[in-house]
Amino acid sequence: MQIDDDILMALADGELAPDLADKVAHAVAGDPELQQRLERFTRTRDLLAGLAKAAPSPGIDPALVARIRAASAPAESAPTESTPAARIPTDSTPTDSAALQVAPDTTVTATPTPTPANLNRAPLAAIAAAFALAIVGFGWYGMNMDPTPAGPGATVSAALDSVSSGAGAQLDAGQELTIIASYRNGAGELCREYEIFGGDLIPELRVACHEGAAGWNTRFSLTTGAPGSAYQPASGEDEALDSFLSRSGAMAPMTLEEEAAALSALADGGGRG
C-alpha cells in the first residue's frame, strides 16, 4: 500500500474514512519510517493547538458585542432609527452618514458605550461607503464586458503604462486617475484596476488589460458616483467587480516590486510575462 504524506496527514487530522484509517494505522504500526513521517504531522498539529490554548483570548471591543446584541435583540426591543447620525464624528463625510442610516437593521445603534474610536478608520469608512453604494443607489451602468476593443484613450493609457498602484495621475480637463491594483488574469495578461474621476466625468471604477501590440483594453467599468463628484471608494461589496475578477481568473494583486517588473516588461515591448 502506497502511503504518501497527504494520507499520513489526513490520518493525523482524523480526516480519513474509518476503514482506510484502520488500514493506514496498521501499516504505520509496522513501519518505523512511516511513524517518523507521521510524527511530523501530529507534532505540528499539537504545537499549533497548544499555541492557541496558551495564549490569552485576544481583546474584543465591548462596543462590537453591544452592536451584535442590539442587532440580534427581539424586534420590539430593538432600537429603531434613533441617534446614530448624532453619534457620527463630525469629520465624517456625508457618505458615512448615509451609509450608517441605510436601514434600522444596519445602523450603528445607540449603545451605552462611547462611540467606537475606529468609526474613523479608513477601512470602515470604505465599507460604509460600500453600503452607501449598494443601498443609497448610485446606479451602475455600462458594465462593459463585451470583447470589442475599447481603448481607454492616450492619456489614460500612458498612466496605465507607468503609474504604480496607490498613486494617481492628473489627466486632461481636471480629470484624475488612481491606480488601485495590478494583477494577471487567467490568460496571463497584465490588468490594472483603477478609478477615474474629476472634471465633469462620472466617476468610474475600471479594469483594463494589456493586449500586447493593441495596447490597453477596458474590460470592466462601473460608475461609482454622480457626475463631477469626487471619487467614492468602492469595495468588494461590488459583487460585479468580484464576479468579473473571478470569471477572468484574476490572480492575487501584485506586490509593488512585481508590478514594477511587469510595467518595465511592457515598456520593453512584451505584454505578457
Binding site: 485576544p58 481583546g59 474584543i60 471591543d61 462590537l64 451584535i68 444596519t106 475606529n118 465599507i127 453600503f131
Partner: peptide, 28 residues
C-alpha cells in the same frame, strides 16, 4: 475572528477592522 484577522494581517488595528467589517457583513 480576531485571531484569524491577526493571522491574515499581522496587525492589531487591521485585525480589529476586519472583525468589525465581518460582523457588519454577517449581520447584514
Amino acid at each position: 475572528l480576531k485571531r484569524f484577522g491577526l493571522s491574515l494581517s499581522r496587525r492589531g488595528d487591521i485585525a480589529d477592522d476586519l472583525v468589525q467589517i465581518t460582523v457588519e457583513k454577517a449581520i447584514l
